[in-house]
């Protein structure tokens, strides 16, 4: 049975009241949603809140899932909306790039050393993730969401445009602009090869 068919079978069973099917369905996606939340919010507590809100939204709307899109796309559409709502309530990752910031300079030096494959300076996974979160934090939420959906969730520009209620070309432009900003930050910190 393919993953998509497996999703559909689990959804059908969960709708009939199977707690086992619901738990299995959540287990399949919780890691992706949690890590998505970590990258968007920058901290574990907000990421947990976001993940719980997402799965509550999935639970409440499961009967509306028609199967005309992938279940993962449907979940990340909910996650996208929940992240926007959460950002309205409390600004997510307000950290902005400041060129004179010593901590940030250290972070990018660490990225640079990691990038050049020096084994002694290899970062731990938490440190590396922390650098990525800091890089993403320079982007406004709409661009951060596009990068997240494109790079990490492999969504198409059409799906992203539909979620953000913008044209496909605008989605492409935002993605390009976001990558350029990240490139500039890496250049300023001499991380680029």
């Amino acid at each position: 049975m393919s993953l998509i068919n497996e999703d559909e079978a689990l959804i059908a069973a969960a709708l009939k009241g199977s707690a086992y099917a619901w738990e299995k369905l959540v287990k399949r996606y919780e890691s992706r949603v949690y890590n998505h939340g970590l990258r968007l919010t920058g901290n574990s507590s907000d990421a947990m809140d976001l993940m719980q809100e997402v799965f509550l939204g999935v639970y409440r709307n499961l009967h509306r899932f028609r199967g005309d899109a992938k279940f993962s796309s449907w979940i990340f559409r909910i996650a996208h909306n929940k992240a926007v709502d959460m950002n309205r309530r409390k600004r997510l990752m307000t950290l902005q790039s400041k060129s004179g910031d010593q901590d940030e300079r250290d972070i990018f030096e660490q990225i640079a050393s990691y990038s050049h494959d020096e084994p002694d300076a290899r970062l731990s996974s938490e440190e590396l993730n922390s650098q990525i979160v800091k890089m993403l934090s320079i982007l406004p939420l709409d661009q951060r969401l596009i990068v997240e959906l494109k790079v990490f969730q492999s969504q198409t520009f059409e799906e992203i445009a539909d979620m953000q209620d913008i044209s496909v070309n605008t989605a492409k432009t935002r993605f390009y602009t976001a990558l350029k900003k990240l490139k500039v930050v890496l250049e300023e910190n001499h991380v680029l090869p």
Partner: peptide, 14 residues
């Protein structure tokens, strides 16, 4: 390169 830097993300356990 900027994109590949992002893709170095290490999945965190829930």
């Amino acid at each position: 390169f900027a994109q590949s830097n992002l893709q170095k993300w290490q999945e965190q356990q829930v």
